[in-house]
């Protein structure tokens, strides 16, 4: 387990609600993947979702920017309810950044072009301004010198930091992280986690699906434990790790922490 180097101060949360999921259900064919998910995330709040594989963690956050459809319930993001209206979905996606397990950088574009694509084609910014923004965020993830390389020439950790910068260039109100360190070599996990901690210190609203419990302890306001499509437990990290309620959570924690 990698411990992030710094421990940010948990600042008081605003009352503004950024994400509200109400009784969300989802089926893959006959398989009930999400069962009655209720979740409210306030502005500046940082949530860590953990749980065994196949528990619906990724599916939950992928519903927030509508990469997955859901069949019942409602989700309101930044005051707009998700619907089947394509334009509406695109509008919401502009405000919600997402970082994937496998980075999903565009291999035919340079690092800089990866970062300017969204601002130029979605935000309609002039190229020069988009490049300034991109360089600013590449500096923040500490790889400005790689701007003109292609993703295939970078290490996994560097690629994931570019992916984070790419999302930030859209100036999102919410960041979703879908197991951002699971595909990385141990040596590279820290550089990505440090970037995420720095982002947390700036007050970004974040939902992270991760198994990095050190990160959860220092950064999260709340830790959510999911199993077989349900939210089992939802607590501030200090309580979650010391006094888990359900047996399922205790078992999971004992397995993940004593390794």
């Amino acid at each position: 387990m990698t411990e992030p180097s710094t421990s940010p101060v948990l600042d008081p949360l605003s009352d503004q609600i950024m994400i509200r999921m109400e009784a969300v259900h989802k089926w893959y064919g006959a398989f009930h993947v999400l069962k009655d998910i209720n979740l409210t995330v306030r502005k500046g709040e940082r949530i860590v979702i953990c749980g065994p594989s196949g528990s619906g963690k990724s599916t939950t956050i992928r519903c927030v920017n509508r990469l997955e459809e859901y069949q019942r319930g409602r989700i309101v993001v930044d005051g707009q309810e998700l619907s089947n209206d394509v334009k509406q979905i695109e509008r919401i996606r502009r405000e919600v950044g997402m970082v994937f397990q496998h980075f999903n950088l565009f291999p035919h574009l340079t690092v800089l072009e990866n970062c300017t694509l969204g601002p130029i084609w979605v935000r309609k910014l002039p190229r020069r301004q988009a490049e300034e923004i991109a360089m600013r965020y590449l500096e923040r993830v500490r790889i400005p010198e790689q701007a003109n390389k292609y993703p295939g020439q970078l290490s996994g950790g560097q690629q994931q930091r570019v992916a984070i910068a790419r999302s930030l260039c859209m100036n999102p109100k919410i960041m979703l992280f879908d197991e951002p360190t699971s595909a990385l070599d141990p040596e590279m996990i820290k550089e990505v986690l440090d970037t995420m901690v720095a982002l947390a210190e700036d007050g970004m609203t974040m939902i992270c699906v991760t198994h990095e419990m050190g990160f959860a302890k220092t950064v999260a306001h709340r830790v959510i434990f999911m199993d077989s499509g349900e939210i089992i437990e939802e607590k501030p990290p200090e309580e979650f790790f010391t006094h888990p309620e359900s047996e399922r959570t205790k078992l999971f924690l004992s397995q993940i922490l004593h390794h």
């Binding site: 920017n65 990469l67 994937f100």
Partner: peptide, 12 residues
């Protein structure tokens, strides 16, 4: 993942 990354950026 390429389609998803493009969608997540808000590209049509």
């Amino acid at each position: 993942g390429q389609f998803e990354a493009a969608a997540a950026l808000g590209l049509g």
